[in-house]
Amino acid sequence: MTVLLDDFVVRALVAGIAVALVAGPLGCFIVWRRMAFFGATMSHAALLGVSLAFLLNINMTLGIIGASAVTAATLLSLTRLHVLPTDALLGLLAHAALALGLVAISFQDTLRVDLMGLLFGDILSVSRGDLGWILGGGAAALGVLALIWRPLLSATVHEELAIVEGVRVRLTHAAFVLVMAVVVAIAMKIVGLLLIISMLLIPPAVARRFAPTPEIMAAIAALVGVLSVIGGIEASLAWDTPAGPSIVTAATILFIVSLPLSGALWRALFSRNEKAHHHHDH
């Protein structure tokens, strides 16, 4: 196994699959809670985390987690103050954070940064050290998500009902946002900060119409993510295309293919239900 990891393609596959496995289930909650733009804003702010990490000379992944979490906290408190409509606020913060990050990075003249790698990912250059962070962070994120699954689902369906029934909603939300920050940080190496949100949104979008329960939707989303990673990396090697965008393109193709498929599935289910109804009538 460790010998296998000497191969950069194997490292890329392992890292990509690890991220996809947690991005699918997390992405489901982002879709259900209508937090797509929130997630995009958090990932844009990741660039600030990168420059912060260089400035303070700390680990880049930790810098990104910190910056994303702080951005999320700022967002949540600004939303409560009703300064601006939420979508406008998110748009403002996302691009302000991105611009600020780009400016801050440009000051790092002693350490030239691979900007394209940060924006669009550099999965084929994943090192053993990166892999450690990705596997550790991914496992931790998935573990916390499993732990808060039921209270988070309950709060997603109806927050106040959940509170009255004793769910500790604030704590659950805080944990959820922290999981998002971790996933943003580990997914950045794979697809880059501009494309992270597509790793979170497209797999659940494919999974939705095939899934009868939240858990099955999460599982299908994880599978779709894994298939996208494998397809994208293979395509990138075959045609020398950039790996991150190739992964997202592979996911998009799966989404397009799934549309008529799911339509057919629904028609089949629907006609079966009709028949069942007729049997009940008599």
Binding site: V31, W32, R33, R34, T156, V157, H158, E160, L161, V164, E165, P204, R208, A211, P212, T213, P214, I216, M217
Partner: peptide
């Protein structure tokens, strides 16, 4: 508690 309003997004498959 029976709340006045409940809206569950179509994207969430739940019976």
């Amino acid at each position: 508690y029976v709340p006045q309003r409940i809206h569950v997004d179509d994207a969430l498959p739940i019976t």
